[in-house]
């Protein structure tokens, strides 16, 4: 029984991380139609900036979210408003835009990694923050992981409310469903898509801030998170925040159960789930 509880807790904590890194990509790919392979690089930047702010200026990592998030939002917004929007206009078809934007995102990946390598080198970094155990009955949880889970749930909830209730959120959802009609209805599609991409980048940055509390930080850390995020987003259904959120937790819990027997099989399990779910729901958990 204790083992089951431990596995469940580990799964929830891991699922929170997966959900956190995927929600941003869900917006970028689901709405803005950019399969941003540089997503993990934004996470890396968030983690690095937090590391610098904490170790050199002593700024609380949780406070860093307020600094890192808006800064990365602006970068993402400008990137979409200039480059990706230009590619979108020039592309002969939506499919061509998807292909071209992957290539451009690859370019972006190289550029961001280069900047990180130049600024911070290729050495491995990290810091310890909130690294103490919290005992809940028979279960022991690392405080920093619990905080990460809390923020993952909280931020995703705020995002959901934002999309469901605000005017901008409604514009984003209409853009996701049918960009052409949305722009006819008076939605400034360029601005909305750029905001979407920026928000995706913001989520990546915040994920980076939280991840840096538990994971080592280095310039090559990004791609691994990008791959997980892509799986989760596809699993959850295109453009569905809720889907990605649930998908992240499913992957985390299944990953933990499998890891309990053999950590080497976790990846195999992810793909097994992927295939099984697609057989049942070909468009993802929340896909329409």
């Amino acid at each position: 029984m204790e083992t089951v509880l431990n596995v469940a807790v580990a799964g929830l904590l891991l699922g929170g991380i997966f959900a956190l890194i995927s929600v941003g990509l869900s917006l970028q790919y689901g709405v803005a139609r950019v399969l941003n392979v540089a997503h993990g690089e934004f996470i890396m930047i968030g983690a690095f900036v937090t590391w610098v702010l904490y170790t050199e200026f002593g700024i609380n990592p949780l406070l860093c979210m307020v600094i890192v998030g808006p800064a990365i939002f602006v970068i993402g917004f400008i990137l979409y408003r200039t480059m990706f929007n230009y590619i979108r206009i020039k592309a002969p078809s939506p499919d061509a835009f998807e292909g071209n934007s992957i290539l451009a995102a690859f370019g972006l990946l190289f550029v961001i990694q280069y900047i990180a390598l130049t600024l911070w080198g290729s050495n491995i970094h990290g810091y310890t923050y909130l690294a103490f155990p919290i005992h809940l009955g028979t279960v022991t949880i690392a405080a920093n992981r619990l905080v990460t889970l809390g923020f993952a749930v909280g931020i995703s909830f705020v995002f959901y409310i934002f999309l469901a209730r605000t005017r901008l959120g409604k514009a984003i959802r209409s853009a996701a469903q049918d960009p052409a009609t949305a722009s006819l209805m008076g939605v400034n599609i360029k601005r909305v898509l750029a905001i979407c991409f920026g928000l995706g980048a913001l989520m990546a940055g915040i994920a980076g801030v939280l991840l840096s509390m538990t994971y080592p930080v280095n310039a090559n850390m990004g791609l691994h998170y990008t791959i997980i995020a892509i799986i989760v987003v596809v699993l959850g259904g295109m453009g569905s925040i809720v889907g990605s959120f649930i998908g992240g937790f499913i992957l985390g819990i299944v990953g933990s159960i499998v890891s309990y027997f053999d950590p080497g099989l976790a990846l195999v399990a992810y793909y097994a789930i992927f295939i099984l779910l697609l057989l049942v729901r070909p468009k993802g958990i929340m896909g329409k």
């Binding site: 580990a10 891991l14 950590p263 080497g264 976790a266």
Partner: peptide, 11 residues
């Protein structure tokens, strides 16, 4: 054994 991309080692 753990894979290189292991995300959680608490268990």
């Amino acid at each position: 054994s753990v894979p290189p991309d292991v995300s959680d080692v608490s268990l």
